[in-house]
Amino acid sequence: MRKLIFLSLLVIVMIVAAACGDGEQASDEEEGEFTPEESIEIVAPAGAGGGWDTTARSAAQVFDEEGIIDQDIGVVNKEGGGGSVAWSYINSQEGSPYNLFVSSPPLIFVPLNGQTELTYEDFTPIANVIADYAAFAVKEDAKWDNLNELFDDMKEDPSSITVVGASSPGSMDHMQFVKIAKEAGVDVTKIKYVSNQEGGALTDLLNGSVDVYSTGVAETVEQVKADKIKVLGVTSPERLEGDVLETFPTAKEQGIDATFVNWRGFFGPPDMDESAISYYEEKFKELSDSEAFADIRSKYGWSEQFIGHKEYKEFLAEQTEELTSLMEELGLAE
């Protein structure tokens, strides 16, 4: 009999303990703690091997290897519409804390070009992690030695100079050049820009088909080392760090007060829970501060630029405003 009472007491204690345990967890969630309980998906809105894909895969790798996030993270390539196919997919995952995507300035360009209804405001900006900058290069034996010489010639006879880039007009390689050239006083509606999307933009510069190559800084380093091309200017606010990178003059120091940043960060679907936002914000901060990610940054020639959730929104609003007026002037915005 005693035994039975003891046993039933034990059972009651266990039940209460279990209930308390549950209660603790429940109260945790109320206080706003979020821990992922399913695997997390990071969408790269383009094919394998591009900038978005590389960023997403290296982030997922560091999250896993450094044990920053315990859950499995899968990178999914959703190609199409310059990103807009993936964006509509994420947009439909309202409130889900398990579907993230990586993005960069095309999230501003593509809506401005009228190719999607969605803008950054239809998503939850979580954190920016990387900054990449543009470089404007010419052949080693070109007659220009700095941006001002080039822009002076462009003011005089815009039809004599052709700029090449990998993206189409109204997207990154074009707009980064336009932004700097406009500040220097060039009539941006007269700039001759050709897009070479088959990977031949650098070739076109080297064989003299075109005069100026608008690209990312990392693409120019090896060619500069080999004395094939020279970089007239980069779009960063200050000189970049690194062996060859530090020799590139900024547009700013040449008296052209404009910068362009190819930011790259992570976003979630609309209406993400505050607790999930702060969870990811913290994790991306950890990622950004980790040595493993610093190593990846230096390999790809990226700069560190962490921007948290709240400031990110403001940053995106500013970027959008600047680019909108520029694209309206070019007649590209819809």
Binding site: A218, V221, E222, K225, A226, K228, I296, K299
Partner: peptide, 10 residues
């Protein structure tokens, strides 16, 4: 690049 080799003319 990931492997620490910078592909270029050199």
């Amino acid at each position: 690049l990931v492997l620490g080799i910078n592909p270029g003319p050199l």
